[in-house]
Design a protein around this nucleic acid. Structure first.
Lengths: 208, 208
DNA sequence: CTACATTTTGACCATTCAGTCAAGTTTTTG
DNA sequence: CAAAAACTTGACTGAATGGTCAAAATGTAG
């Protein structure tokens, strides 16, 4: 008895990773229902039955990609430091989220699609893990406010506002590009967006 | 030759409207690919062939619902008055958008889903009509800034920020409810959200 | 090198679903 | 009220798609 239930062979490691990369691209572009196993298999460069050898159900691939995405996605949020300077911490977090939206819009889009359709696969995660984490960070912000370091605003709505604003550039990318065609092509587009957002946001919560 | 190409009979008027209502519900919940004509027909209380008698293709229903949604959705944006007080105008607009998110989340969700998946049906609309409208309102905001009535911020990013923040409460409703279960049930939830958002936003753009 | 385990795939099946069609029912019109 | 127009639907079709299976190919451990 080896007991190595989770042991992966060399080939398994490689192929699972290839599949998950392909799946992220496909699912984020077309949503769960709009994506086909054939599409993912083609992008991954293997036959459909071969893909199903690694992930027996379409849903298995989807859930795995989604879980990986959530981890990455929340990392910078976890990093908000209660001991740091409030404005600096929120600036850092906002910039990090914006960077992620610019560099990995697929992850944001995958998540947005899941939530938009009622979060069928991550309801529990939202209500347990995510809620706990947000409650914790909302407390941190509340403490900052109590210490007079931020204007009195509802911490939860402030968090939502940062999420909404930053993720907008990934999720509504097509719309942003339709309205600012020349701007989005420029190298400094990201900096300008960050600058505008941070100006409004940070002035908005600066203690008066 | 009567030439009444667009003439609708009494029954057509009734049924098209019933179908579009049903379609909004279904498409907003499941997206285009995730929705079936049978679902819409059932919700509309008629047989599938009957529904297809009014809208020969699934895409016809979808595009029609989407176009109606866009009209409603942009109405308050068009109403932003260049002659009004800047802060008052933006407050009014933000509140209206928030109200729409609360009262008609389906419309916001339908639109979000369309954009999220690359706006296959409304690319042209975004690049022509919407762009023109946004350019126009961005000019208004730029004038307000030039007159010293608002802090100097990029008008486009300010508009995106208002859109993102307000629509978040419709599009990410499931997430908001997962994190604020008790809050969302309260009657004054809407007012509190509006208050928090407006505090940050308006303080953020108040001239200094 | 050989025996065993792992990986790969063509062919196939069952279901779902957009859309058709012909025949029947209801509404409108003169 | 009769004829025409408009409306309604059960039964069907073909394509797409998630998933199966058995056999072949490849990799690996001893």
């Amino acid at each position: 008895m080896t007991g190595n239930i989770n042991k992966q062979t060399r080939i398994q490691g490689i192929n699972r990773s290839i599949i998950l990369d392909a799946a992220l691209e496909v699912f984020s572009a077309y949503g769960f229902r709009g994506s086909t196993i054939d599409q993912i298999a083609e992008k991954a460069g293997m036959s459909k039955p071969n893909l199903l050898y690694y992930f027996p159900r379409k849903d298995d691939i989807y859930v795995t990609v989604l879980e990986k995405t959530l981890e990455d996605w929340l990392a910078p949020f976890k990093d908000i430091d209660p001991a740091g300077d409030p404005v600096a911490e929120l600036r850092k977090y906002t910039i990090q989220k914006l960077k992620m939206s610019a560099q990995q819009p697929e992850r944001s889009q995958l998540f947005a699609n899941e939530i938009l359709h009622g979060a069928p696969s991550i309801q529990k995660f939202l209500k347990s893990n995510l809620k706990r984490l947000v409650d914790e960070k909302a407390d941190v912000i509340a403490d900052w406010i109590a210490a007079g370091k931020l204007a009195p605003v509802d911490p939860y709505h402030l968090i939502f506002m940062i999420w909404a604003t930053t993720q907008h550039y990934a999720d509504f990318d097509v719309q942003v590009r339709a309205i600012l065609p020349e701007e989005t092509a420029k190298a400094d587009f990201f900096d300008k967006a960050a600058d505008s957002i941070l100006t409004i946001l940070l002035n908005g919560i600066m203690p008066r």
